[in-house]
Simulated scan of single mutants.
Amino acid sequence: MPTGAKLVGSIVFFAIGYYAAMQAKLTFEEGTPATYFNITIAIIGFLQGWMVVGRRAGAGFVFAASNGMRAGAQIALFGLALFALRTMFLRSMDLRYSAPGEALTEAMELFLQYFQQSLTPGIWGVLLLGGIIGGIVTEIAGRAWR
């Protein structure tokens, strides 16, 4: 059921995801295809704001801040997993792998490689600090629209 907290949470975390994706694009190697990267991460943020933060609004500011941090971390991890799997599927279309297990192993290696690449204060600062602020803003919206 739509609520004001879910609406505000989804909009705030959409913006957090978009800005974090812009920070992440700064770490990409030259020539990395990232056509829909920003909007994809922003949609993950939208869904996290709606389903995680907005749904749990109303339990207090400390709980809201921790939910915001959780949503920020989930945006990063879901985004990393999605793009590692995307890269694996693109490579598998070029017949790069001889077995499914090899493709899954490569996807895990890509996930770890992308995770190490993302360990910058710009990306995680936006996700965690923005998540805390977004969680508190969502809590305020939840209290205002009870």
Rank of each mutant, 00 (worst) to 15 (best):
L129W: 07
M93E: 13
P100I: 13
A141Q: 07
Y97N: 04
T3S: 15
A76H: 08
A5I: 04
F111Y: 15
Y18G: 12
E139R: 06
E102W: 00
S118M: 10
Q117F: 05
I16W: 03
A84Q: 04
F61T: 14
T87Q: 06
L77H: 05
F13W: 08
A99N: 10
L90G: 02
E109M: 10
I140D: 00
I123C: 01
L95Y: 11
M88L: 06
A34L: 01
D94T: 11
Q117G: 12
I123E: 00
G101I: 00
L26T: 10
A57C: 09
F13V: 08
I39L: 13
I132D: 06
A65L: 10
L95E: 12
Y114N: 14
K25P: 00
I16K: 02
S118V: 04
F28Y: 11
Q116L: 12
E102Q: 15
G125H: 08
K25Q: 14
I136T: 04
F63I: 07
G134P: 03
S98I: 08
G142V: 09
I140M: 11
R56F: 06
A84K: 07
P100H: 05
I136R: 03
G58P: 06
A73M: 15
G31T: 11
A42Q: 07
L26M: 11
V12K: 03
L112V: 05
P2I: 07
R86F: 14
L80K: 05
I44K: 02
G4H: 09
A73T: 12
A107H: 03
F28L: 12
V62A: 13
M69N: 03
G4L: 11
R55P: 01
R86W: 14
K6G: 06
Y19L: 14
Y18H: 08
L80I: 15
V137G: 04
L26I: 09
L82K: 00
M69C: 13
G31D: 04
G49L: 04
A84P: 07
F61L: 11
R70E: 04
G130P: 08
G142N: 09
A5C: 06
A20E: 09
M108F: 15
F13E: 05
V53T: 14
L77Q: 04
Q113Y: 12
G142S: 06
Y114H: 10
E29R: 09
A99T: 15
L104Q: 04
N38Y: 11
S92K: 13
A76S: 14
L128W: 12
Y18R: 02
G131T: 05
K6M: 12
G122S: 10
I16H: 03
M22C: 01
L47R: 00
G60M: 05
M108E: 02
T105V: 04
E102V: 11
G134K: 02
E139V: 06
T35W: 07
Y114F: 15
N67G: 13
L95I: 05
F78P: 02
Y97K: 05
M1G: 05
I41P: 07
I43G: 11
G45M: 08
G125Y: 10
E30V: 13
F14E: 02
N38C: 07
G122V: 09
A76Y: 05
F13R: 09
R56N: 15
L128F: 15
P2M: 09
G9P: 07
F115E: 01
F115R: 02
A24F: 15
I75H: 02
Q48G: 11
I132A: 15
